[in-house]
Simulated assay, not measured.
Amino acid sequence: MTPLDPRALRTAFGTFMTGVTVVTAHDNDGAPLGFTANSFTSVSLDPPMVLVCLASTSRNYDALVTADGFAVNILTENQIEISNTFARPVEDRFATVKWHNGPQGSPILDGVSSWFDCSMHKTVDAGDHVILIGQVEAFDANSTPGLGYARGAYVTPSTAAEALEHSPNLIVSALIEKDGHVLLVDDGNGGLALPECVVEGQGASAAIKTLISSTGLQAQPGFVYSVFEDLDRKRQHISFLCQTAEGEPSKGVFVPLTGSALDDMTDPAILTMLERFAAESVLGNYGVYFGDQKSGEVRAVT
Rank of each mutant, 00 (worst) to 15 (best):
I108M: 05
L109P: 10
D110H: 13
V112F: 12
D117L: 06
C118K: 09
K122Q: 12
V124F: 10
D125C: 07
D125P: 15
G127M: 10
V130D: 05
I131A: 07
L132T: 04
L132N: 05
Q135D: 09
V136R: 01
A138F: 03
A138M: 02
F139S: 03
A141D: 04
L147Y: 14
Y154K: 05
T156L: 11
T156H: 12
A161H: 03
L164Y: 14
L164G: 04
E165K: 00
N169H: 11
L170H: 09
L170C: 10
L170K: 09
I171A: 02
S173F: 01
A174Q: 06
A174V: 03
A174W: 04
D179Y: 13
D179M: 10
G180K: 10
L183P: 05
D186C: 11
N189F: 07
N189V: 01
G191T: 12
L192F: 05
A193Q: 06
L194F: 04
L194Q: 05
L194N: 05
P195W: 01
P195L: 02
P195C: 03
E196M: 00
V199Q: 08
E200A: 15
Q202N: 10
A204F: 09
S205L: 08
A206Q: 02
A207L: 09
T210N: 14
L211K: 12
T215W: 04
G216Q: 03
A219T: 09
A219Y: 08
A219H: 09
Q220K: 14
G222A: 11
F223S: 10
V224Q: 13
S226L: 02
F228Y: 14
D232E: 00
R233L: 00
K234C: 00
H237V: 15
S239E: 02
L241I: 00
C242F: 03
A245Y: 11
A245S: 15
G247H: 11
K251P: 00
G252A: 03
